[in-house]
Design a protein around this nucleic acid. Structure first.
Lengths: 337, 337
DNA sequence: TAAAAATAGTTGACTCAGTCCAATAAATTG
DNA sequence: CAATTTATTGGACTGAGTCAACTATTTTTA
């Protein structure tokens, strides 16, 4: 009746990758033979693409990047030069090397190849509907990034919440706290209640939720809700393990404080637990002071709850170098005594 | 402050696939040249793999599947036969064709190739931690399935809820109802409340949640909770668009009813809305009767709520052919008058 | 600073994976 | 039974990619 969880350990990953490899060589490899109906080989096309992508390069860089035989590449470039596709100028810095670049003509060929490549992929994904296309793009993008092919820029976007985001926040927080601290389902219930109340009573002018997204995945969040007369409450700060080390927590807290200030609140409060040291450091650096501590038993654990507060009057974001995230990097002046 | 949603339309998908293609040929293609340190070409290895995978085949099937030149394959098979790797028996059914199969020897070669392939991939994913490996497997698996390489078997598993599942349920339902029926955030709030209460008051002997998972994605869910003396409530039935057409809804409802019966309830109730016709059909086929209808304004819409009920005394699952899912497929005998 | 070693690229010679075309032989069709 | 189609094979070829040897520089080292 109830089946096993879909276990996928290391060995299983290998089999999945192997299956993908076979599938991909069968399906895509077909398109490569007489590359896209052009007089060029797949390898030639790769060289042309690489030349177009980098402004000008050396032959050795190309052999390196594309794992080509230097002799083979040399002949290929000679042929390209013969057709007026590439310019090979002496490298002024190094007499041995030559600087290669595409001519106008060569760039036209590159553009043509790119168009054909797009068309061929367009055919490939033709049977997919929009949702499936998005899923495919996300999957292959993620695979590329995981295998080290993507740019290293994290590109984390902050945006307002949309349909389904509360659920994603609940899921990511519950999973994280259960796995990291062994908290029980009570925590997921609490987060769900908070989120439900947020949606029910949401007042856009005085409340807000920030969703941090990276490549379409939710990687962090923070909420600001009314707490009383002129008091706002910061809630549910969370940064996913995968996105830590980029100052996202600080960024979220800063956004939140700034909005609270603009919305006219005088004081910002938050409740947290002492074991969440990373979060505490962020609060401290932002200027929060610890107001109260109290032991409690929740989420199946003995914990120490903490209430922190920040005076929003004249608050200014502490100056910190972007990406400088070591615990000591907060300027001491902004830390409470 | 607030950035654009990470828009990824059709054109964007194409670019992602192209980038992946380039990356993959550069990264993986390298491994292919002198295939895995064996005397075999990549193409030869593909043929060997295919022969190992199918018990016995014809040459024409291989050329078809791997897009090979028949002449080329013929020569290759001859060479394999010479080395005692393949057996080519006359096809009794068709005198023109021959049935190909690997010999003991050939199977040993296939096993060796598989091992080397696994090792090479193991190296490739060595820098990834466990979470990243799982993500890679999931991504490539999904890409394979999307592009039509996976087995068509849906393989939907039902299991109890785990940490984070409530969040996933909330997210998928909210997204789905907002997109399909234009419901507002009130609905997400309601689902979140229901889930929170479920977790808070969860009584494993009399309550239960089923999560339907396909390839690691949540594709459906259903809840059973206490409703009163001897009455149980069925809640939050949902089947994701991607998983419809496999009888999952019926399967979930059947599981739920069966559990309710075993748990000793006498009556099962549920609340739904008349616009959810697919769900209603499932309830009807299972034997539920419409007890009450009432117009209400919720989720930003004018809706008609319905209460359905089922007498659990002596209930038996209606007989239906597996995968026979057309609305009329429920046997009339089991449908309420 | 001169000799040795490494780097960047070129050229010649070669091979073998993969292609194209035609032939053969059995099976199917009209 | 002639005509056509399907399954496979053989001959002939080509050109992508490899290996080794060589020149021209630059860098290292003794």
């Amino acid at each position: 009746m109830i089946a096993m969880p879909a276990g996928q350990d290391g060995a299983d990953t290998i089999e999945t990758v192997r299956a993908f490899n076979r599938f991909y060589t069968n399906r895509i490899g077909v398109l490569d033979r007489a590359y896209l109906d052009t007089p060029y080989t797949l390898t030639e096309a790769r060289v042309i693409y690489e030349l177009a992508a980098r402004g000008s390069t050396s032959a050795s860089q190309l052999t390196e990047e594309l794992s080509l035989d230097p002799a083979y590449l040399s002949r290929m470039l000679k042929a390209f030069a013969g057709k007026g596709m590439v310019d090979a100028a002496k490298d002024p810095a190094d007499g041995r090397g030559r600087l290669l670049s595409l001519t106008e003509n060569g760039r036209a060929v590159a553009a043509d190849l790119a168009t054909r490549s797009r068309e061929s992929i367009s055919t490939l994904i033709a049977p997919l509907d929009e949702t499936e296309r998005l899923a495919l793009g996300a999957s292959l993008g993620k695979a590329t990034r995981l295998l080290g092919g993507g740019e290293s820029s994290p590109a984390i976007l902050l945006r307002d919440h949309r349909a389904g985001d509360m659920g994603r926040v609940i899921a990511s927080q519950a999973k994280s706290y259960v796995e990291t601290y062994g908290w029980n389902a009570e925590y997921e219930a609490l987060v769900a209640e908070i989120c439900a109340n947020f949606l029910r009573n949401f007042d856009p002018s005085r409340e807000r939720c920030w969703i941090a997204e990276q490549h379409g995945d939710l990687v962090g969040s923070i909420f600001l809700v009314k707490g009383g007369e002129s008091t706002a409450k910061l809630r549910l700060l969370h940064v996913d393990a995968a996105a830590r080390g980029h100052g996202l927590g600080t960024r979220l807290v800063t956004e939140c404080i700034r909005f609270a200030q603009e919305a006219g609140y005088g004081r910002l409060e938050l409740w947290t637990n002492d074991i969440l040291t990373a979060a505490r450091r962020i609060y401290q650096s932002a200027g929060f002071r610890l107001e109260k501590e109290e032991a409690h038993h929740s989420f199946g654990q003995d914990l120490v709850g903490q209430i922190w507060a920040l005076d929003l009057e004249g608050w200014q974001a502490p100056v910190r170098l972007p990406e400088a995230l070591s615990p000591a990097s907060g300027t001491p002046a902004t830390q409470p005594a």
